[in-house]
């Protein structure tokens, strides 16, 4: 059963330079217990999607069209009160900048206990602290660090604490937005491992947002590749990585250096991402594409089915 269905969602921001179309007509579904990864470069709209799912868009941002169905209910139609009820309890987010997500003048343990108390009025302080201890155990923070302040934590521990906070109310869906970007590779590996274990243990559904293809490939079963506000390719991990269809996916894959396999030349994508206040007509990747067709610049691309569950937004496929 699908826990999350996103249909034709477009999101924009009012900026000084005009209305910025950050996300255009994005649709996807996430099954219960499934893992879906969004990959793309900065400015492609992947974080915006995460924020919109959580109902946490900044004041100048709004969902222009479409529906977001969480367990069959449209969250865009919900009142603030209703959204607040499902946020953290039903779906939680692991933020990008762990250092900013924790209050520097409060003990880490207390912060998480407080988050639990706010959402679960039936338990007392003692019980909440007990739950926090269990959570710390789960994410691998030693129990004696419970009463420390955030600045006494290392980067990896802060990120673990933020994960503990996201898990505090036993949500069904977790949205992880670049949870390991600022971390060293060994710590990153440990955290990713932990997220995977937790997913298995609690049967969580996960949406994983990252700029790093290899992390998304590592973490998720389904992959959505985003470019300039659009979803350009969607499908099972193996298919997207082994037989990519969209030129952007191919280009992205060949611009990443690897430590395994044959050493091959990196092929950078020429140019820069388009301006989303006045997006280009036709295919948005056309200007940077290595194999543009004659009609790509004018024709709006449509979804093409490549294989089971594997589709791409390209005129040439």
């Amino acid at each position: 059963m699908a826990i999350l269905e996103v249909e034709n969602v477009s999101i924009g921001y009012n900026t000084k330079k005009g209305y910025l179309k950050a996300v255009e007509r994005v649709s996807f579904t996430l099954d219960e217990g499934g893992s879906l990864g969004f990959v793309g470069e900065s400015g492609c709209g992947k974080t915006t999607i995460g924020m919109a799912l959580m109902g946490l868009l900044p004041p100048n941002g709004s969902v222009r069209e479409g529906r977001i169905l969480f367990e069959g209910k449209n969250t865009l139609r919900m009142s603030d009160e209703e959204i607040r009820k499902i946020r953290w309890r039903e779906m939680a987010m692991i933020f990008q900048a762990a250092m900013n997500a924790l209050n520097p003048v409060q003990r880490v343990g207390n912060q998480i206990a407080e988050a639990i108390l706010v959402h679960d009025l039936s338990i007392g302080k003692e019980e909440a602290m007990g739950q926090v201890e269990a959570l710390f155990e789960l994410v691998g923070i030693p129990r004696d660090r419970l009463r420390d302040y955030p600045h006494q934590y290392s980067g990896g521990m802060k990120q673990r604490a933020v994960i503990a906070m996201a898990l505090a109310c036993h949500p069904k869906l977790i949205i992880a937005d670049e949870p390991t970007t600022a971390l060293d590779v060994i710590v990153q590996d440990q955290i990713l491992g932990e997220i995977k274990d937790l997913q298995k243990e609690f049967d969580l559904s996960i949406i994983f947002i990252s700029h790093d293809i290899s992390i998304v490939a590592d973490m998720c079963n389904d992959i959505g590749v985003m470019y300039a506000g659009q979803l350009v390719e969607f499908g099972p991990r193996e298919q997207v990585f082994e037989s990519p269809a969209h030129p952007y996916t191919k280009a992205l894959l060949s611009s990443f250096p690897t430590v395994t396999g044959k050493k091959s030349d990196l092929i950078p994508i020429p140019g820069e991402t388009p301006n989303l206040v006045v997006p280009p007509t036709g295919c948005r990747f056309c200007d940077r594409c290595s194999e543009p067709g004659p009609s790509c610049k004018t024709e709006t691309p449509a979804w093409v089915e490549i294989g089971p569950g594997h589709k791409t937004l390209c005129c040439r496929c």
Binding site: V185, I186, Q188, D189, Q190, L192, G193, K196, D212, I213, S214, I215, A217, D218, R237, E238, F241, E242, T258, V259, T260
Partner: peptide, 24 residues
């Protein structure tokens, strides 16, 4: 060094690099 690392630390670093879609 990368294909045939000898130091345990280098090995640990290489182990930790996320690999494309294989059993971690």
């Amino acid at each position: 060094v990368i294909r045939n690392p000898k130091h345990p630390y280098t090995q640990a670093l290489l182990d930790a690099v996320p690999k494309f879609g294989h059993d971690r």
